[in-house]
């Protein structure tokens, strides 16, 4: 007997379910499509229905990509002190740290606040756009895997909190003005959070593997 069950159909059609977090085997479970299903032993959410997941996350991902360029190149804050003014953008911040030879801090900041989020947004757009256009290519499979694996290394929201703390620290020292980059960054943060919350990975896997099995069964 071959046991191959996919994401959504794993829950809906099949008789076998494995919990991702505690490996509990659940058999013969009748489950409706519109429900949220929880593991009885550890409480892990096995499946959750989301409305229009693919088109919604595509829309948010595109919005986030539009905001991306101004968010990283435009100044986030402008500091004025004794008639002198100084600007800081996401990229210039990392460059200055590199020049001061703090390689670990510079690379870590650049990766987690800029490169990883950009890469994830590109992957998400690629995957959701391809599904919408009914296009299939082998690279879609690893693209979505990579998207999932990089999840915890993108830290847009932590950087936003960092901006707030930095402003408070500087208030007593100098005058600070928000730059255009700050608004773009906030928009980027909001739309990329919405893109990931709208996304239901089970449904994406179903769509991807559906198209894949047309070429070669798995």
């Amino acid at each position: 007997m071959q046991v191959v069950v996919t994401g959504r159909s794993q829950v809906i059609n099949s008789r076998i379910l494995l919990c991702h977090e505690c490996d509990l085997l659940i058999e013969n479970q009748e489950i409706c499509e519109t429900c949220k299903v929880q593991c009885p032993r550890c409480g892990h959410v096995l499946y959750k229905q989301k409305h229009n997941t693919i088109s919604r996350s595509l829309a948010y991902a595109l919005t986030a990509l539009i905001c991306f360029y101004p968010a990283v190149t435009q100044p986030i804050m402008i500091l004025e002190m004794l008639g002198l003014s100084q600007q800081q953008s996401l990229i210039s911040g990392s460059l200055i740290l590199l020049r001061e030879k703090y390689y670990v801090v510079a690379i870590l900041t650049f990766l987690s606040s800029c490169l990883v989020p950009l890469f994830r947004l590109l992957l998400l757009t690629y995957v959701t756009l391809s599904i919408t256009l009914n296009y299939y290519h082998k690279s879609l499979i690893w693209s979505f895997r990579l998207f999932h694996e990089m999840e915890e290394w993108g830290m847009l929201e932590v950087y936003m909190l960092g901006i707030i703390v930095a402003v408070v620290k500087l208030l007593s020292m100098a005058e600070i003005q928000p730059g255009f980059g700050l608004w773009a960054y906030a928009a980027l943060l909001l739309s990329s959070i919405l893109a990931t919350t709208a996304l239901n990975p089970h449904e994406v896997w179903d769509a991807l593997l559906d198209r894949k099995t047309r070429e070669e069964p798995c």
């Binding site: 991702h20 505690c22 489950i31 429900c35």
Partner: peptide, 29 residues
């Protein structure tokens, strides 16, 4: 959506004990 928690089976068996493996990426068994 309604939350459903399946009943905990009388005899708890893990996937490992049943000789199954769950793909950590695409949730296939």
């Amino acid at each position: 959506s309604k939350t459903i928690t399946p009943a905990l089976p009388d005899k708890i068996i893990t996937g490992k004990e049943a000789g199954l493996v769950l793909c950590a990426e695409c949730y296939k068994v």
